[in-house]
């Protein structure tokens, strides 16, 4: 790693200004992705401005989880994946998030990696992560995955970059209609839908989120779950642990008079952004749940898929994990 200075500043305002005005200064939360970039030589910051050093009420809000008076749940950006994973029973209706957190990375990483860092991490594409390769994400002319080895790359929404979004928590949060609070450099806090955080490659292939330097993701808020709301997350990996998913699905739904209502479907690790499948939602909304319906919805979800020559296997895999998540959320046993 390059030499750098650790900067501990107790106030958000000063930390934000420091990053916005100092060449080479970056914010650090859990630091898992940041240290990885530095060790690989992809990034050489002059200063690490520590979010964990934020003190007082601001720091406590970053580190804590709480329930608003109206029942909304707020998770601070520094809450770790391990903390979220432990919440499954308390997270009635929001189980998908805890399930996703419980299967991300490894137990040791989950004790360090934060909610904010998980959402803002850079892609795991091996071309992007290779220091000697100049891909589209690093200012090059083309996505090297398109004509290279793209077995782990996008089947939906690909082009001009074919990365898959690396966050496992983003999908559940999209399905659960979460919002995020972002502190601007001028100190104003804006609340946006989680989907607006992510930037697709047609907008800007160099970035995956819309935050400017010095802007700070403060927290994620989950809406009050509707009565009877259920959610589920399912994924497929080559290894059961310490591996990145090949495909993930998160669903949220509730039952009303035997019909599915308020269905939201988000797919992960198949597109450059957490992929909301409105096709699957349309196929499910207002229908009576059944194995046949879920299979049709899964077909609909991958309808727009344009797999590359080397990753067509992801189409049926994606359908499979979506069916698994739907069966779990609707509490209908899987047919197989």
């Amino acid at each position: 790693m390059n030499r750098f200075t650790i900067v501990r500043i107790p106030s958000l305002k000063d930390a934000s200004n420091r990053v916005a005005t100092t060449q080479g200064a970056v914010l650090r939360a859990g630091g898992i992705d940041l240290l990885d970039h530095m060790k690989e030589g992809l990034q050489a910051p002059s200063e690490l401005v520590e979010l964990h050093a934020i003190g007082g009420d601001e720091g406590m809000k970053l580190r804590s989880m709480d329930v608003h008076g109206d029942g909304r749940r707020r998770l601070g950006a520094l809450v770790t994946l391990a903390q979220i994973a432990e919440l499954e029973e308390l997270f009635e209706g929001h189980q998908a998030l805890a399930q996703a957190a419980a299967h991300a990375a490894t137990p040791g990483i989950r004790n360090a990696a934060t909610l904010g860092g998980n959402l803002l991490q850079r892609p795991r594409c091996w071309y992007y992560r290779h220091v000697d390769l100049v891909c589209l994400k690093k200012g090059g002319d083309m996505c090297l995955a398109q004509t290279g080895d793209h077995r782990y790359h996008a089947i939906l929404g690909g082009g001009p970059s074919y990365i898959v979004h690396p966050s496992s928590l983003a999908g559940p949060l999209v399905a659960l209609e979460a919002t995020i609070d972002v502190r601007g450099v001028d100190g104003t806090v804006r609340t946006i839908a989680i989907e607006e955080l992510f930037v697709g490659p047609t907008v800007d292939p160099m970035r995956e989120h819309c935050l400017a330097p010095g802007e700070i993701l403060l927290s994620v808020t989950l809406p009050v779950p509707a009565p009877g709301q259920r959610s589920a997350h399912a994924m497929a990996k080559e290894k059961q642990s310490q591996d990145w998913p090949l495909a993930e699905a998160s669903v949220r739904l509730r039952m009303d008079g035997g019909k599915l209502r308020d269905v939201r479907v988000a797919l992960g690790h198949v597109a450059p952004v957490p992929w909301r499948s409105k096709e699957a939602e349309a196929a499910l909304e207002g229908q009576a749940p059944s194995a046949e319906l879920f299979a049709r919805a899964a077909q609909a979800a991958t309808g727009p898929a344009k797999p590359l020559p080397g990753n067509a296997y992801k189409v049926p895999l994606c359908q499979g994990v979506l069916r698994q998540a739907l069966h779990e959320a609707a509490q209908i046993p899987l047919p197989e």
């Binding site: 030499r3 750098f4 200075t5 650790i6 900067v7 501990r8 500043i9 107790p10 000063d14 050093a53 003190g55 007082g56």
Partner: peptide, 9 residues
């Protein structure tokens, strides 16, 4: 923890 600090390089 209330005072800004710089360590290193």
């Amino acid at each position: 923890a209330t005072a800004p600090a710089e360590l290193g390089p």
